[in-house]
Computed example of a mutant assay.
Amino acid sequence: MQEKLRTSGLGGENLLFLTDDQLRRGIEAMFFAYRAFTADPDLILADMDYGRAHHRALHFINRDRGLTVTALLDVLGVTKQSLNRVLRTLITDGLVESRVGRRDRRERQLYLTDTGTALERRLSEAQRARMRAAYRNAGPQAVAGFREVLEAMMDPETRSQYQALKELPDPRK
């Protein structure tokens, strides 16, 4: 079976036919790239008895300070029970602080503590270094194409969440 991918070229629109084998190789490349992308943070997390769910929570709390528990549930796409386990550990260990909502006292807003911010920085710096090297090696056109492919793989709701995050200021500034 072949899939058509439309690309615009200088002479108009070209069709690139992708075979199942080419698609399979792309899927496998994605699996192996994800394994490499998560390897460095996984080593750091393992020393603390944390997993990837802890890392994702730290990342998104850092990205959107004051994020509500409900919003974090939506972003992570996990069950309330699963998130509660992760948050309880992060709060008990002094990495995350839960505050009463400013607009709605029933809401819980999440913030990283200084210790949480330091850990998140350590985890993401390893990933930024890997991405920086890959982007430099691939070049600007490949980077733009890679982002385009990733965004095209997202369903509309996920893409909307991603777009909203892109508009937030960089938390490191």
Rank of each mutant, 00 (worst) to 15 (best):
L87Q: 00
F32E: 09
M153I: 05
R172T: 07
Q161N: 07
E28W: 08
A53S: 10
N62E: 15
T113A: 07
T115W: 01
T117M: 10
I27L: 13
G26N: 08
L112P: 02
A53V: 04
T115L: 13
Q141L: 14
R103N: 11
R122P: 04
L123D: 10
R130S: 07
R130C: 00
S124H: 09
E148L: 13
V69A: 09
V149Y: 03
L112S: 00
L112K: 02
P171I: 03
L72R: 01
R106I: 01
T115D: 15
L15C: 09
M30Q: 10
R121M: 13
E28L: 14
A36Y: 02
Y34A: 07
L150Y: 09
R122Q: 15
P41H: 13
L90E: 02
P171T: 03
M131T: 14
T117A: 15
D93S: 05
A46E: 15
Y50V: 04
E157K: 09
L58T: 02
L83P: 05
T92R: 10
L18Y: 00
G116Y: 04
G9T: 08
D74P: 01
E107P: 04
A53R: 04
R56L: 14
T89D: 14
A138C: 10
G12I: 03
G77M: 00
F17N: 09
E157W: 01
L87Y: 01
L95Q: 12
L119S: 02
L23I: 13
H55E: 15
Q141W: 12
V100A: 06
A126F: 01
N62H: 11
I91D: 05
G26F: 04
R35S: 06
L168N: 03
M154A: 07
E107N: 15
R130G: 04
V69N: 05
P41Y: 09
V143E: 14
S8T: 10
G51W: 01
D170G: 00
L10N: 04
K80A: 12
A53T: 07
R130I: 02
A164G: 01
E3S: 12
V75R: 01
L76F: 12
R122M: 10
T68H: 02
L67Q: 05
T89W: 04
S8E: 09
R99D: 00
R52L: 06
T79R: 06
Y34V: 09
L110H: 03
E167H: 13
G26T: 05
H55K: 08
F31D: 07
L43H: 06
D170W: 03
L43F: 03
M48L: 15
D64A: 12
Y111P: 04
E28H: 08
G116S: 02
D49R: 15
L16W: 04
G9M: 04
L58N: 05
A29T: 08
K4I: 13
A71Q: 11
D114C: 00
F146V: 11
A29I: 03
R99L: 14
R159D: 09
G26K: 07
G51E: 07
T7D: 09
L45R: 01
F37P: 00
V149I: 14
L67N: 02
A142W: 11
Q161D: 10
A39P: 06
N62M: 11
L23F: 05
E107W: 02
D47T: 10
L15S: 10
R99M: 06
D20S: 11
G26S: 06
F146A: 11
Q141N: 13
A152H: 06
A138S: 15
L110P: 00
F32G: 02
I61L: 08
